[in-house]
Design a binder for these strands. Sequence first.
DNA 1: GAGCTTAAAACGAACGATCCTTCTTTTTAG
DNA 2: CTAAAAAGAAGGATCGTTCGTTTTAAGCTC
Lengths: 215, 215
Amino acid sequence: MARVSQEHLDARRRQILDGAAVCFARNGFHATSMQDVLKEVDLSAGAVYRYFSGKEELIAAIVGEVLGSVREAFEDAARQSPPPPPDELVVPVLGRTLAARENLTVDGRPAFPRLVIQVWTETLRNEELAALLREGYASVRAIWSRIVEAYQDAGMMRPDVAPDHVARTMIAAVMGFLVQHSLFGPIPVEVLRDGLRALMSMSDERTASHGSQLG
Amino acid sequence: MARVSQEHLDARRRQILDGAAVCFARNGFHATSMQDVLKEVDLSAGAVYRYFSGKEELIAAIVGEVLGSVREAFEDAARQSPPPPPDELVVPVLGRTLAARENLTVDGRPAFPRLVIQVWTETLRNEELAALLREGYASVRAIWSRIVEAYQDAGMMRPDVAPDHVARTMIAAVMGFLVQHSLFGPIPVEVLRDGLRALMSMSDERTASHGSQLG
DNA sequence: GAGCTTAAAACGAACGATCCTTCTTTTTAG
DNA sequence: CTAAAAAGAAGGATCGTTCGTTTTAAGCTC
């Protein structure tokens, strides 16, 4: 094809990104060869290298997309008003995250959660990508801290804990759930929701004095 | 050296494992070349291949050790009697995990948490290692479920949530904390402890009827 | 609108580099 | 002196990438 429509070019680029994403989710970035990718997307080297300057750029593009999707999932969930309690806040975050790129699968399982872990390891060796991750993390952390402050202001939560610490704890729970999802297969989101709900039911008797006027 | 003492053989094996672990924590298993490992441990190929049949076996050995250490950390913490509440249970788990292989560092930072993430990705592509991970996870999950049952039996936690769900949630929190530690640098364990403590202080008003007789 | 033109798009063989591993040689400890 | 341990050059395979060739589709001509 020559002098092809912009839509075709975009579709090709996406085709390559999707095929590469599947390969990377299956085997990781560096155990996946370019030949693997070429076979998966059913294109020749010449075709792929027209759209991406090399493997590095392909990886960077995918990492960027994945980080963006996760960040959006966290930020969108936090946009709800009024902010739902933690156990319910976690549902839309994971819902959106697990639904991301649902069309891409690795032996019948969604590829995206696997991709997330792979992306984490890649940020460990690529400072540029690490900076991107840090930026998104900082943003999410700040937004979620606001929600925690709301909990405290409403007397729903003891006020003597730094909101940031609670935010990081909640983010950790979501991350860990995502890991379990990747490593052990699909888990209903309700597992985490109910788990948090149960934790929330534990009256803390050691320093019980906080705003909630007990009925 | 010829006809060398058993201790020397053991020390060599450990030297190789430690050097390789640092390399793998830095760059991942498959972006690390054998030459990288050889340079790190300051040995020749002939020496290393006397102790390990190849890269694959080296990876498997390290993955096994890492999974074992993490599993021990989780199980040991659960052995405390009486079982501490979640926020305090989490402290020894992370303490032991973060202290594992503390002598190994990647540019000044502990290598072990990074290694954990790398291990996860490796289990995604190696069914044998995946089985090992599943086994350890199942064991930890069962043991932690017991602790949750104790919470419920003592009236500290609402009894209408499956203990396994709570166990998985707590494990998720620890895993996620570990991820944050790897990706963003050292975090005091108190962050997670206080975060959980705050969550535990949230009286769940929707279905408040559970055993704890509010004083 | 059929056929030709042409430049873009895709192909795929092949290159140098690097990979993991082997194997011969050298060194070393008992 | 001897056999184990370590060395390190080199083999074969595979890697990412390039580049000359072929195919294709949009535009032009008649």
